[in-house]
Design a protein around this nucleic acid. Sequence first.
DNA 1: ACCCAGGCATTGG
DNA 2: CCAATGCATGGG
Length: 272
Amino acid sequence: MALLALPQPFDFELSTDRFRVFGPDLANLWHEGGLHRVVGRREVRIEAAAGGVDVEPFDADSEAVVRALLGLAFDLDAFYDFAQSEPVLARLVSGLPGFRPPLAPDPFESLVTSISAQQVSLFAAFAVRNRFVERYGERGVEAYAFPTRERVAEASAEDLRSLGFSRRKAEYVLGVARSELDLYGLAELPDAEIQARLTALAGIGEWTADWFLARHLARPRAWPAGDLGVRKAVAAFYGEVADLRAFGERFAPFENLSAHYLLTGLRVMLPA
DNA sequence: ACCCAGGCATTGG
DNA sequence: CCAATGCATGGG
């Protein structure tokens, strides 16, 4: 068991909340107080420890996945300083200290996850996506590996439809899996270029591309202005806003972290 | 039996 | 350029 030290403050429960609140996530599975994920052919378990997290087994691959799942790419100190100049953000960071937005470790996973969540409730999206993971992903111990692009490319639209994808979405998932686009290479490009290349694919619109920048690449300026949850959170903390894209400018250059704190604040702080 | 939910492409003005 | 429409599932 290896200790991975994390910048403090860090709140493990809060940062992994997303993997539990909409039901279990078979590829990022909360099990007996820890987060389980298949890396390579082995299942990795992450659990809270003093000063960071314990990771088992620990190697370069599992460390990279943990860094993604726990949002280590974000500069929380700079964001917290910035938040002091904006009353709502100041309240959010003081209410959610140590919250780090989790990232999708893999680009294909990020896109399929977003496609599954288009238009439907997150409960419905999780249900469909779990059936997809169970069907095409390799089983670890408790968790399943997220299905590889290569495996999905060989699937059929009818098979995907039987899992609950609409006819359209089944075609989108197959199209992404079979496209020529180098998904890993996107990380080297600027935000606008990534947007352009992704939205050229069928089924990937502005919303999905925004979330790819935000939740896979941790781009600081990503702002999912078309997101219904972001709209509800902004309405709850600021009141109704006509142009959500323009409203995001007040969070520059921390739009991504601001969106995540707004969403989590809506769930965790407002009901209380 | 409805209605809505963290969109998108298609069609028709 | 904007409005209307269909899509499949899960929860209320």
